[in-house]
């Protein structure tokens, strides 16, 4: 894996599994130990031993000191519950000339790799996304397109999740707010939420939804997937641009519009970085022309060091 990343070769990998394995090995190469520590090992209090309790949880030291049989209780007696939330709004389908895939492809690959990794360390992994063909949870007006897999530790969950991820399709319009609302409703308290999105949705409700996550005690990691075209706006020729989500059209003057675009894009990025800093939510920008494994590795290593 020391060879330089080649977007075209990576795109040629046939299946999501191959890509995910490639990415997982890439980011494992850069970290040491698990970057995720769920709340499952935090000690809470003692209670008296009752016949039938598991002796593994008996505090023998306390027994030696006080001659009392006590059971140690933890905050939560399961491993961490992780939710992979994928933004499938229409803007995620954009693929520039330099990218190895669309933003949605990139999110799929990273989500699969992380699911693989989390399941290997016995964490429960679930999936939340919006897709036109889904509809497994009949609740609310969007029930017809909600794709939801509850968290599970079973290794078979990976295959199911890959199938769901591969079947994901663009929701057709702006869908980030709806996704965040569904995720907040479905996730248990104090869960780990891994969000893959481009954040390109001009709504106050997005910020409110992130604040809601924080209020509910969730730990949220935001992977902002961006195409290099969105970052540096390489278009020189004037032409008609059509928005992927709203269908609105603009007559863009090419290079003349670039400065304005870049300044607004930078402000947009600064505002979100400030938001995530205030909410103490780790935030990583993933470019679709780069090796997603290395990007993940760097991000998770920095998180592990914290």
């Amino acid at each position: 894996m020391s060879a330089p990343f080649d977007p075209s070769r990576f795109a040629a990998l046939a299946t999501l599994a191959l890509k995910a394995r490639y990415v997982m090995e890439g980011f494992l190469h850069g970290i040491h130990g698990s970057p995720f520590h769920g709340p499952s090992v935090e000690f809470a209090d003692y209670r008296d031993y009752q016949p039938g309790d598991d002796l593994r949880h008996l505090d023998w030291r306390l027994y030696a000191r006080n001659d009392r049989l006590c059971i140690k209780r933890f905050e939560q007696e399961t491993n961490a519950r992780c939710y992979l939330a994928l933004d499938t709004s229409a803007s995620m389908t954009y693929r520039g000339a330099r990218a190895w895939g669309s933003k949605l492809d990139c999110a799929r690959v990273m989500a699969t790799a992380l699911a693989w990794f989390l399941l290997k360390q016995n964490d429960a992994v679930g999936l939340v996304a919006l897709s036109p063909g889904a509809g497994r949870v009949a609740d609310g007006d969007s029930a017809g397109r909600l794709c939801y897999l509850p968290p599970s530790q079973q290794s078979s969950r990976l295959g199911r999740m890959m199938a769901e991820l591969e079947a994901l399709d663009s929701a057709g319009d702006a869908a980030l707010v709806e996704l965040l609302q569904h995720t907040g409703r479905l996730a248990h308290r104090r869960s780990l939420i891994l969000l893959f999105t481009d954040l390109l949705e001009p709504s106050e409700e997005v910020e409110l939804a992130f604040k809601r996550f924080r209020f509910d005690g969730h730990e949220c990691l935001v992977f902002q997937v961006l195409d290099p075209d969105e970052i540096d706006f390489p278009f020189d020729d004037p032409g008609v641009f059509e928005d992927l989500e709203s269908g609105e059209r603009r007559q863009v003057a090419g290079a003349d519009a670039r400065d304005a675009y870049l300044s607004r894009f930078a402000a947009f990025m600064r505002r979100h970085e400030e938001l995530f800093r205030l909410l103490e939510m780790p935030h990583a920008v993933i470019r679709t022309d780069q090796d997603p494994g290395k990007a993940l590795g760097r991000f998770l290593s920095s998180r592990a060091r914290r």
Partner: peptide, 14 residues
Amino acid sequence: NILRFSALRFLDDQ
């Protein structure tokens, strides 16, 4: 000659 773009919200002055 229509380019479908994802970040047109930053070009709303066009």
